[in-house]
Simulated assay, not measured.
Amino acid sequence: MTVAARPVIVVVGAGLGGLACVGVLQRHGVEVVVLERDEGPRARPQGGMLDLHEESGQAALRAVGLEDAFRASVLPGGEAMRVLDPRGRVLVDEDDDGDRPEIPRETLRDLLLAALPAGTVRWGCTVRTVHPLAGGRHEITLAGGEVLVSDLLVGADGAWSRVRPLLSDALPAYSGVTFAITRLRDVEVRHPGAAAVVGGGLMFALGEGQGLIAHREPGATLEVYAALRLADPGEMAGLVVDGLLGRFAGWAPELRALIAEADERFVPRAIHALPVGHTWERRPGVTLLGDAAHVMSPFAGEGANLAMQDGAELARLLLEHGITGAEGRERAVTAHEAAMVARAAPAAAESAANLDVAFGPDGARALHEVMLAHQP
């Protein structure tokens, strides 16, 4: 008797979405190859705090079996939010209601990695080229010359995906807003004024087409984003502390302290987004999820949540439709793409609209009005 070979499923990218997909599949006995260009999980910073939503990020963690571990790792009080104007006047001051718990992105990724068998993620594997073969298979050549052939290729490799060109010519476009990111540490002792103005969770100080955004992290740390509208995001690299303080001249001293008292150098990050409703013609043997499919600005709080939901739902559909046969995989991927586009499009539209609101001439007041309009 001839035993059919197991399909080779290759996920490119060991971010939250890819790991959620792999976690669900491996929990049901499906082996997956994960290619990640980073040399290891600590090769670069993973970003700041994430609020996980019940219907998306939290649902994905339940599917992977990590809900209890997640609950044990959330930041108490981290869901609180404040909105201030440039003078430091508080327009919004909301307590943590527990609906969307906050967790550091790095901690969340560690939980997902720890749930996988050793060796699932192949670190230090940069995809150089991908070529379609017959029957929906793909030849993947790594930077070191190694060649793999997939039966199903999943692009979970972020905004600048190497897999997306197989499906779409779209590229993320610059939003016009660039962040400069830093941290303040031991804030209760060394930066009490900054700690007080931020509060226990997330703070937006907005106005004049720019903003200061800060978030509590574990260990008495604040992550701070100085955000500017810039025609050329490269301008941010030339703005050190004095240059940034000049951009926020006239703002309240306790807000400017978030820049002046920075304990780390400022790291520029230009905000990019794919077109709202980004879609593509279905092609066999390959699909996308997360930022590779629908990268958006962070101003809807949906990116990581959607990526994890994409991954968990793709895995569920593959298990439901039959992962061993090409027809079943195609049915699953077709359903995945239709559902993913449908849920990502409104979130992308909201994130683009909120970015424009936040970085308008009176961002704090305008954001407050948007929040009031969304209250039940």
Rank of each mutant, 00 (worst) to 15 (best):
A373F: 01
E350M: 14
P132W: 04
L111A: 11
Q26I: 00
P233W: 13
E350G: 06
V32C: 13
G88D: 07
D232M: 06
E106I: 00
T120L: 04
L75I: 10
W160K: 09
R329I: 02
I9M: 04
R282V: 10
H336M: 03
A300H: 14
D169N: 07
H374V: 03
V127S: 11
R183L: 00
A4E: 14
M1V: 12
G15S: 06
G303R: 13
L16Q: 10
L230H: 07
G234Y: 00
G48W: 12
G13Y: 02
T182M: 01
L112H: 07
G23H: 10
E94I: 00
P268H: 06
L19T: 09
R105G: 07
M1W: 03
G124D: 11
E254K: 06
G18I: 10
G144E: 09
E254H: 13
V154P: 02
A180Y: 06
D356E: 15
A220F: 01
L306V: 12
S168G: 03
A195N: 02
L16H: 08
A293I: 04
Q46F: 08
A335L: 03
G78N: 09
G285D: 10
V149I: 11
Y174P: 01
H53V: 05
R100P: 00
P298T: 04
A194G: 07
G193Y: 01
A257C: 07
A257T: 05
G322E: 09
M296H: 08
P86K: 11
G48M: 06
R269E: 05
C21T: 06
